[in-house]
C-alpha cells in the first residue's frame, strides 16, 4: 500500500513536470491557430516553420541562436579548458580563491549578470549587438566548462605530464599529445553544456542584444507573446528544441556512465 502511494506520487510529479511540454508536442501536430483546439493530425506547422515565408524573422532568430551558441560554446570550451589546467597547477590558498571566483558567476542570478554586462558595455561605449551577445554568452559559459574539465584533471596521474617531458616532448607537445586527450571527455561535456546554456539563455541576451533588431529565439518568443498571441509555429519549434535537448542530455549521461565504468575497471 505504502509502495503504491509512493509510486503514485512519483508519477503524479512527473506528469505535472512534463504535462506542458507534452501538450505542446501533441498540439504541434495540428493546424489550429489557437492552442487547445484539435483540428485533426497535420504536419502543416512543421512545413511552414521551415518554409519561412511569413515567419522570416523567426527563422532569423533560430539562425542567430544557433550561431551564437556555437561560437560561444567553442570559445568558452577553449578558454575554460586552459583555465582549468591553470587552476589545476595552482596550490593551496591561490587555488581555493580562484575556484571560489569561478563558482560565483554560476550562482549569480542571470538577471544580475545581464544587467552588469549591460552596464559594462554601456560604460565602455561598446555598441550592443551580435558581438556583445556572443561575448556575454562566453562569459557565463566558461565557468561551467572549467567545472566539467577539472574532475578529469584531478583523476589524471600527475606524473604523466612529467613522463611526456621526460621522453623528450616539449611542454606544448605534452599538452597536445597527452593532456588534451586525457581531458577531452570533460571538454566535450563542457561544450555540450555551454551550447545548451547559450540556447536556453534569455535574461543575459535581453540585456546585451541592443536595439538594432537582433533577436534570438528566446527574445523573439518573448516579444511575440507581448504582441499578443503566440505564433502557432512556435509549437513545433518548442517540440524540436525539447527533442534536441533531450538527445544531448542522454548523450551526456551515457558518456558519464561510460567513463565511470571505465574508471571502475581501472
Amino acid at each position: 500500500m505504502k509502495r503504491l502511494f509512493a509510486q503514485l506520487y512519483l508519477w503524479l510529479l512527473l506528469a505535472l513536470l512534463y504535462a506542458p511540454i507534452i501538450i505542446i508536442g501533441i498540439f504541434s501536430f495540428t493546424e489550429s491557430k489557437v492552442l487547445g483546439n484539435w483540428t485533426g493530425f497535420s504536419t502543416e506547422l512543421y512545413t511552414s516553420l521551415f518554409s519561412g515565408g511569413a515567419h522570416h524573422s523567426l527563422l532569423d532568430a533560430i539562425k542567430n541562436t544557433l550561431t551564437i551558441a556555437l561560437i560561444a560554446a567553442t570559445a568558452s570550451t577553449l578558454l575554460g579548458s586552459v583555465a582549468a589546467i591553470g587552476i589545476h597547477n595552482l596550490h593551496g590558498r591561490k587555488r581555493r580563491i580562484i575556484t571560489f571566483l569561478n563558482d560565483i558567476p554560476m550562482l549569480n542570478p542571470d538577471i544580475i549578470t545581464g544587467i552588469s554586462l549591460f552596464l559594462l558595455f554601456v560604460s565602455l561605449g561598446v555598441s550592443q549587438g551580435y558581438t556583445t551577445v556572443v561575448l556575454a554568452h562566453i562569459a557565463f559559459c566558461t565557468p561551467y566548462v572549467v567545472l566539467s574539465v577539472m574532475p578529469r584533471l584531478q583523476q589524471m596521474n600527475p606524473n604523466i605530464y612529467e613522463a611526456a617531458l621526460d621522453l623528450g616532448a616539449t611542454p606544448f607537445q605534452a599538452l597536445r599529445k597527452i593532456i588534451i586527450p586525457e581531458i577531452r571527455p570533460g571538454m566535450i561535456s563542457g561544450f555540450i553544456l555551454a551550447f545548451t546554456l547559450s540556447i536556453d539563455d534569455f535574461a543575459v541576451t535581453l540585456f546585451t542584444k541592443g536595439n538594432e533588431g537582433l533577436e534570438t529565439l528566446s527574445t523573439y518568443i518573448y516579444a511575440d507573446a507581448r504582441k499578443g498571441g503566440l505564433t502557432p509555429e512556435l509549437r513545433p519549434l518548442s517540440t524540436i528544441i525539447f527533442a534536441v535537448v533531450l538527445l544531448l542530455l542522454i548523450i551526456i549521461n551515457v558518456r558519464a556512465k561510460r567513463s565511470a565504468k571505465r574508471n571502475q575497471v581501472m
Binding site: 612529467e162 613522463a163 623528450g168 616532448a169
Partner: peptide
C-alpha cells in the same frame, strides 16, 4: 629543461599514457 636531458625516468605509479 627536462625534455632536453639525455636521461629517462621510471615513475613510481607507472605514469603510462592511458589513451
Amino acid at each position: 629543461p627536462p625534455h632536453k636531458r639525455p636521461l629517462n625516468t621510471v615513475f613510481q605509479r607507472y605514469a603510462l599514457f592511458p589513451h
